[in-house]
């Protein structure tokens, strides 16, 4: 029958070539593409690298930060690092994923052999690599120009950075997967500004009006910032309350992100 003829014909012209590439090769290619995309979009570089550097230099140079104890840079660097991580996860990852959803890229990828887990893995690795650049850049500037020296607990700092990354990346993805792209853009930038003002990274929380300070205390930004400040200070007490707050936020946001995310 013609069916058989066609089958054998296709067998000749296309010998078993329809096979998925090995998983890690797919993820590797996707990581490369994610990094290329990050570098292509100027606004990503602006919000994740240039803006934190400007904030660090501006506030470290003007000496207007009302710090009660310790040096300005020891207070400022963890706060700016926390803001940079929020920019990578919430602002950059959130907005770019929202637009990939809007343009149907996420849906189209769903018809390829790349598993969803592979796509998410690639996005996480790309964000982590971006964060390494942020840490080196901001830490380097603080070290070279403002006399900062690494102190505190590196292990705790890495743990806090990891928790913060998961929290804010999940927050970005939760918005990207459930809101319209324009809404995600607006909300992510709005939250970033809010966290900059009441996250305790630039202005110490005890300089805010008391009710606002109490509210800010329970938000993920302050919890993240305070944990990181403690982790990067010699002899600071273990930031139990802040770390617990961050952990609760992380779990909450992860659940929401997983439940609310729509690929199309």
């Amino acid at each position: 029958m013609t069916t058989l003829a066609n089958t054998s014909q296709s067998g000749q012209s296309q010998p078993q070539s329809s096979q998925a590439a090995p998983f890690l090769q797919q993820v590797g290619a996707q990581i490369k593409a994610e990094l290329l995309l990050t570098s292509r979009r100027g606004e990503n570089i602006l919000v994740t690298l240039i803006l934190p550097v400007i904030l660090l230099i501006f506030f470290a140079s003007l000496k207007i930060i009302p710090v009660t104890s310790g040096s300005v840079i020891n207070f400022l660097l963890p706060g700016i690092l926390a803001l940079a991580i929020m920019a990578s996860g919430m602002v950059h990852l959130g907005i770019s994923t929202a637009y990939e959803r809007y343009y149907g890229v996420l849906k189209r990828l769903g018809a390829t052999p790349l598993p969803r887990s592979g796509l998410i893995m690639a996005k996480i690795v790309a964000v982590l690599l971006l964060e390494v650049v942020q840490v080196i850049l901001l830490g380097g500037i603080a070290f070279l120009f403002y006399g900062w020296h690494p102190t505190g607990s590196p292990a705790l700092a890495i743990l806090v950075l990891a928790l913060g990354t998961i929290t804010f990346a999940a927050l970005g993805l939760a918005m990207a997967g459930s809101l319209r792209a324009e809404t995600t853009l607006a909300v992510a930038n709005g939250l970033y500004l809010l966290f900059l003002l009441i996250g305790g990274g630039i202005l110490p929380l005890d300089h805010l009006p008391a009710p606002l300070a109490i509210l800010a205390q329970y938000l993920p930004a302050a919890a993240f910032t305070q944990s990181l400040q403690a982790a990067l200070s010699a002899g600071a007490p273990f930031p139990g309350a802040a770390l617990l707050t961050l952990l609760i936020w992380m779990l909450l946001i992860l659940v929401v992100a997983i439940r609310a995310f729509r690929w199309e």
Binding site: A20, A29, Q30, Y103, L109, L114
Partner: peptide, 22 residues
């Protein structure tokens, strides 16, 4: 909907999709 990455060039998108296959 074509579902193309707007910021990538045609060859880059095709290269990416090609890497999903053996």
């Amino acid at each position: 909907q074509d579902g193309l990455y707007p910021a990538l060039r045609p060859r880059e998108v095709l290269q990416l999709f090609a890497s999903y296959y053996r």
